[in-house]
Design a protein around this nucleic acid. Sequence first.
DNA 1: TTCGTCATGTAATGGGTTACATGATTAC
DNA 2: GTAATCATGTAACCCATTACATGACGAA
Lengths: 228, 228
Amino acid sequence: MLELAILGLLLETPMHGYELRKQLVMKLGTFRAAISYGSLYPTLRRLQQEGCITEAEPEAVANGEEGDRGLRHVPPMTSRRGRVVYAITAEGKERFAELLAQAGPETFDDPAFGVHFAFFSRTDRQTRLRILEGRRRRVEERREGLRDVLARAAERLDAYTLELQRHGLEAAEREVRWLEELIATERSGRTPGSTPTDVRDDRGTAGLADPLGKVRDNPPSDTPERFE
Amino acid sequence: MLELAILGLLLETPMHGYELRKQLVMKLGTFRAAISYGSLYPTLRRLQQEGCITEAEPEAVANGEEGDRGLRHVPPMTSRRGRVVYAITAEGKERFAELLAQAGPETFDDPAFGVHFAFFSRTDRQTRLRILEGRRRRVEERREGLRDVLARAAERLDAYTLELQRHGLEAAEREVRWLEELIATERSGRTPGSTPTDVRDDRGTAGLADPLGKVRDNPPSDTPERFE
DNA sequence: TTCGTCATGTAATGGGTTACATGATTAC
DNA sequence: GTAATCATGTAACCCATTACATGACGAA
């Protein structure tokens, strides 16, 4: 899970560990609070040993859109101690694709779903649909389980347990609806977020004239790479 | 966490491990899928060594409401192999109270909250309020964090990540509302579930004539034990 | 007699956490 | 010069999981 997240982030741009963690918090904030260095650095080491990532030249690091900040006559940032910048390799990309494609465990409370979802812009539509449908199935199962309990055993449970189940059921129902929408969006070849109410950058996003959905999987701004 | 759950269930009635697991699934279904024997049995052993639980006489086991089933002339169920029935001890009850009272970690995705909540009918109102308010604070923090991201960094995130954050924000907002209601209910001395729409067993549940909330913490059907 | 379910357990492993230790750089 | 923050790491532990092994009992 950490592995997937690291590879996914490095796919966008090379980074060092500390930065990686910050990005992780921002990207996965929904599903996990934070991730500790105690697991981050060992994982980086392991990934490097397996050839999935390499140390990049600190000066070659993309400073992204903010340009190089200031002075160029000093060695472009006198490598503060280690500050090991990692970049993903070809093997790493392969590995990423594998991890992304394989569904998580069959449990409902699978935190891996969020991580998968967070990197959907790096996947093809087939995979996205498979993951979304898998998730839907699991949440539906859970929903049915909760309905059963509430229908059959409600009087054997105390008020608080009951309330907990009710809240869980409601959340499950809502998530199913959410997933349903996302699935519909995928099938129609659109990208989430461009709803009627919230327009932002709506330059006629393809449409129904593309039955196979091969074209314009994503907005041009972040086209998914083809991994092998 | 497992410890808390085991003690909480044994507080209601003695049980053996296998049964314990089934009850656990039913009671905590909301927060965890299932719990494996590989962690259940070792935990039981440990709890026993610590004096929190003891092996109960298999024949003394409360068969609950279903009465003793059938024959009494044979040793009341020729103990199928081990079938170790455990009962909670005085130390166990103390331990349970401690565990229940201490708040979980400061993380938002704390699965302990659900377990705490599931055993609310065994706690006093002060503790309940403290836990609910703690949870609310954490979820609010998370909500603010998500709002920040969506307000400030939305254009730097791809559509899927954005959608994930939106969904997370919505869930957080809803949970805060839920918690708010529960807190209000607690403060007014009521018990959740007896809303106007859903009456079921509404024989005038106390009311506002009890400012300190000492009376009728719970419906008579499952009065909380006093632990020490 | 064999299969399904009840029932208990162990060993290996996994994926993380906390607490700690260290040092470099920047801002005051 | 000193505090805050950036940055990397290690060691010990924790709480659970998976896979496996065992065995009793009831029903077909």
